[in-house]
């Protein structure tokens, strides 16, 4: 599969502040790509640069082969975008908003939009001005997820939604992926990224600090323990004799007080080796996105 989104050395400065600091990434066609990072990391700036809303100070980006700065209209013909806290026309009724966006977008379809709205249990007879924040968000989601655009860019799509609707939205994202769409999914909710994304990237201070495959991350386990007195000798011996084991592990901490090791791949393969490990209070847990995210933030 080719890359549908390519960004190279994107730079956006506001005075001396660098919102994007030479950011590069690529998104494989047909994948769900998670974008993670704390507030102010540059996620929304990246999305707005891709859509041509802001002009980067340097670098280049393309979507479906169209240059994001020079061919912004062609780019937006291939994108359906859901902004964080989407605002819609207050005077219109829900049904009119759906019709408007279904008609104005070449990939839009009114029937699909109505079906998504029904799935999200939306009252379309009400004017947008009289809708709650959650209802407006659902309406915007219906407008965006009903399109057949090759790329969906969703910026915090589940903000303001109750847990049931969140699950519906995630299932709609998966459905869009199954129908061939690529999804760029920006969120602060780590569990959502873990649930729905194939690949994720962590952005910090305007740059990508880690990109990883989410399924690989799920197959990784972390071992914590307190080393016993024989630990050093055992570890030195392991380095010499168990080279096949070492290819699957990475040592995060190794000192007299604490040992932390990540094991990639099926844990069963390493259980015998782990049973010989001279550590006390051993604890084995799956490496969640939280661990990856926190380790990135701490190391940065």
């Amino acid at each position: 599969m080719s890359d549908i989104v390519v960004a190279e050395d994107l730079l956006k400065t506001y005075g001396s502040f660098r919102a994007l600091n030479g950011l590069s990434l690529s998104i494989r066609q047909g994948s769900v790509f998670g974008l993670l990072g704390p507030n102010g990391a540059g996620k929304t700036t990246l999305i707005r640069s891709l859509l041509g809303f802001i002009k980067p100070s340097g670098g280049r980006a393309s979507i479906c082969g169209w240059d994001c700065m020079l061919q912004s209209v062609q780019v937006r013909s291939n994108v359906a975008y859901l902004p964080a806290e989407a605002k819609l026309f207050g005077m219109m009724r829900g049904s009119a908003v759906l019709e408007f966006f279904a008609a104005i977008n070449p990939n839009g379809n009114r029937e699909r939009a109505l079906a998504v709205a029904k799935q999200l249990d939306l009252d379309l007879a009400r004017r947008v001005a009289f809708m709650s924040t959650g209802m407006r968000q659902k309406l915007a989601i219906a407008c965006v997820l009903s399109t057949r655009a090759p790329l969906l860019i969703l910026d915090e799509p589940t903000a303001n939604l109750d847990p049931n609707v969140r699950m519906e939205v995630l299932s709609l994202v998966r459905k869009s992926q199954n129908e061939g769409a690529t999804v760029l999914f920006s969120s602060h909710v780590l569990s959502e990224i873990e649930d729905v994304c194939d690949t994720a990237t962590i952005v910090l201070r305007g740059n990508v600090v880690k990109t990883f495959n989410v399924s690989d991350m799920r197959a990784t386990h972390r071992v914590h323990g307190t080393p016993m007195t024989t630990w050093c000798d055992w570890w030195d011996a392991t380095l010499i004799t168990d080279s096949n084991v070492l290819s699957d592990i990475s040592v995060l901490e190794n000192d007299s007080a604490k040992v932390v090791i990540d094991i990639v791949g099926p844990i069963q393969k390493h259980l015998e080796w782990l049973s010989r490990m001279p550590v006390e209070n051993m604890r084995i847990e799956p490496v969640g996105l939280r661990s990856v995210y926190e380790s990135c933030c701490v190391s940065s």
């Binding site: 859509l51 937006r76 819609l88």
Partner: peptide, 14 residues
């Protein structure tokens, strides 16, 4: 100010 420009200009429109 109303925040509606974002959704409007997300459409393929000069």
């Amino acid at each position: 100010g109303r925040g509606t420009m974002e959704m409007l200009l997300a459409q393929p429109l000069h």
